[in-house]
Design a protein around this nucleic acid. Structure first.
Length: 564
RNA sequence: UGGGGCGUCGUCCAAUGGCAGGACAGAGGCCUUUGGAGCCUCUAAUGGUGGUUCGAAUCCACCCGCCUCAGCCA
């Protein structure tokens, strides 16, 4: 990940880091980290954080850590650790040997808890969860102190020891910090440090039956790793005073936390909890469904890591709530794919064309350019014969104004091949459906140029019927119909905003034969249609393509504005 | 209702007391063997009211609006 920042101005975080370096705050060091909880799949919102943290470590010659904040054994699984590692690698971030787990620090955290007890800064509380909540008070009224708040150090030590030894039931006791029940910041009203959870942990197994809360773990984990700049999202702003309190009481390395606004994108949901519902209600096939905003979903859809990184650098970094338009993401994608994807001709909805004056049984190999944006991509041969397929959308019997494609009596160019003219339209006698076009070709226009200099309005893609291979193509559209999927009327469910047409499967599409040996994840531009990649569901007899994104489409725009 | 945070083109981000700029989106045009790509032009913003200042998006005051916090989740 070495994308150079084109922008001359720095975001507020880099401005702070510049200043810290200037004042030698951390001895010129920069150590950042990405600290996910391994309880779900990473999505593009996480990519923003990964790009930020890893990007900064690179720009400042610093160090980047990957740390799994695994403090809740009830929800965390090894499966998520593995998928996250894969996704982060794919995005291009490299943590070297700096892979950590908050659970690596459980012993240290336990010792620190004992120190706080000994210092009279923590106590074991026997209140129930509901009582603790009730005692905490309201925003505008102070809380009540727990009746267990003033137990002796000895009693607290004994009780905490017994909590650790499994002598108590879950929920019967917690260890709390003794701070200030009247604090205006709710996080300071004697927050819970440890709770009893008699479940095994994906890394520590059954060693512990008490687990530190995230709030008692996160700041100290950063501290242990000597993180200089702990970058997190806005909702942790209120927690910073608590992290600072722990760090000060413990007298350990004081990491500087800086908060930034999380990413929102139109037509997308980027909340872990909401995404779980989409998956569990089977609106999609899984976490890697190409409609999902997860890294794994985007990858399967055909996104490139470069395009996601470019997007992350373009959206900037600030503290104001923001919703980036999905068009920007798509722009970054197209821009990248335009440079790297080889062009190919594929007909999604085939319409048979017979070239009446072309010899039966003849086949020609025509030269086609693989990528006009990249000469080094070279050329290939494309077979041409008497019977072809063109796109159904490329023919209209009674064309409206501005429809430049094929129509009765009209001449168009078949890309890299010949000019053809439509001389007859064959219809199904029963349904009236157009089933075949009879055309003639001009042998003089081989390659696509007329010696007499005459012009055609359109160049169309096509495949030779005899040579084309059949494939399934999955057309994806946005998962939600509403720019803000969460915007619903009273009593309505945001899941009702799911786009019922987010997936259209096209069978028996005809693909240019050069794609016969394409492998999953291979990306192509189907000329005039969009960018597509080979899906992992492909088999040896049938390729399956995912439409990554369409090409910008002037004609579609005209049609759309006409409908309005 | 108390705390914390945030308000700049439709959207995202700049401008740190000195001509409000870029990107995406949108409109128009050029070019084109992809109605792709590329190129050009245009449209379009400082939440409000006072104040300080030669000069305010920027500093001050007040107001308005939005987000967020009352898990033994992270």
């Amino acid at each position: 990940m070495d994308d150079t920042k084109a922008s001359s101005s720095k975001d507020f975080i880099r401005t702070i880091i510049d200043e810290d370096i200037r004042t030698n705050k951390w001895g010129g060091k920069v150590v950042t980290r990405f600290p996910p909880e391994p309880n779900a799949y990473l999505h593009i919102g996480h990519a923003k954080s990964i790009c930020l943290n890893y990007g900064i470590s690179q720009e400042y010659n610093g160090v980047f850590h990957l740390r799994f904040d695994d403090t809740n054994p009830c929800k965390e699984e090894e499966e998520f650790v593995e998928s996250m590692i894969e996704d982060i690698r794919w995005l291009g971030a490299d943590w070297g040997d700096n892979l950590f787990y908050a659970s690596d620090y459980y012993d240290q955290l336990y010792e620190w808890a004992i120190k706080l007890i000994k210092d009279g800064k923590a106590y074991v509380c026997d209140l129930t969860s509901d009582q603790i909540s009730e005692y905490r008070g309201k925003w505008n009224e102070p809380g009540k102190e727990s009746p267990y708040r003033n137990r002796s150090v000895e009693e607290n030590l004994d009780l905490f020891e017994r909590m650790k030894n499994g002598e108590f039931d879950e929920g019967s006791h917690v260890l709390r910090a003794k701070i200030d029940m009247a604090a205006s910041n709710m996080n300071m009203r004697d927050p819970v440090m440890y709770r009893i959870l008699k479940v095994s942990h994906h890394r520590t197994g059954d060693k512990w039956c008490i687990y530190p809360t995230y709030d008692f773990t996160h700041g100290q984990s950063d501290s242990i790793e000597k993180i200089t700049h702990s970058l997190c999202t806005l909702e942790f702003e209120d927690h910073r005073p608590l992290y600072d309190w722990y760090i000060e009481q413990l007298g350990i390395h004081h990491t500087q936390q800086i908060e930034f606004a999380r990413l929102n994108i139109t037509y997308m949901v980027l909340s872990k909890r909401k995404l779980v519902q989409v998956v569990e209600n089977n609106y999609v096939s899984g976490w890697d469904d190409p409609r999902m905003p997860t890294i794994t979903g985007l990858r399967r859809r055909g996104y490139t890591p470069e395009s996601i990184r470019d997007f992350c650098s373009r959206i900037g970094m600030a503290k104001s709530d923001n919703t980036v338009e999905i068009e920007l993401l798509e722009h970054c994608l197209r821009e990248d794919l335009n440079k790297r994807a080889n062009r190919v001709m594929s007909v999604l909805k085939p319409l048979k064309v017979v070239i009446e004056n072309y010899p039966d049984g003849k086949t020609e190999e025509l030269d086609a350019i693989n990528n006009p944006e990249d000469e080094s991509a070279g050329t290939r041969k494309v077979p041409f014969s008497k019977v072809l397929y063109i796109e159904q959308d490329d023919f209209m019997e009674d064309p409206p104004k501005k429809f430049f494609r094929l129509a009765p009596g009209r001449e168009v160019r078949l890309r890299y091949a010949y000019f053809i003219k439509c001389v007859d339209v064959v219809k199904d006698e029963q349904t009236g459906e157009i089933i075949e076009l009879r055309c003639t070709y001009d042998p003089e226009t081989r390659g696509g140029n007329a010696p007499d200099g005459r012009k055609v309005k359109t160049t169309m893609h096509w495949v030779s019927a005899e040579h084309a291979i059949e494939a399934d193509v999955r057309l994806y559209d946005r998962l939600f119909t509403n720019a803000n999927p969460l915007d619903v009327d009273e009593g309505e469910n945001w899941l009702d905003n799911i786009n019922p047409d987010s997936l259209t499967v096209l069978e028996s599409c005809r693909i240019e034969p050069s794609l016969k040996n394409a492998k999953p994840q291979d990306r192509f531009q189907f000329e005039r249609l969009g960018y597509f990649c080979v899906d992992k569901d492909s088999t040896s007899d049938k390729l399956v393509f995912n439409r990554t994104v369409t090409l910008r489409d002037e004609w579609a725009k005209i049609q759309k504005s006409r409908k309005k």
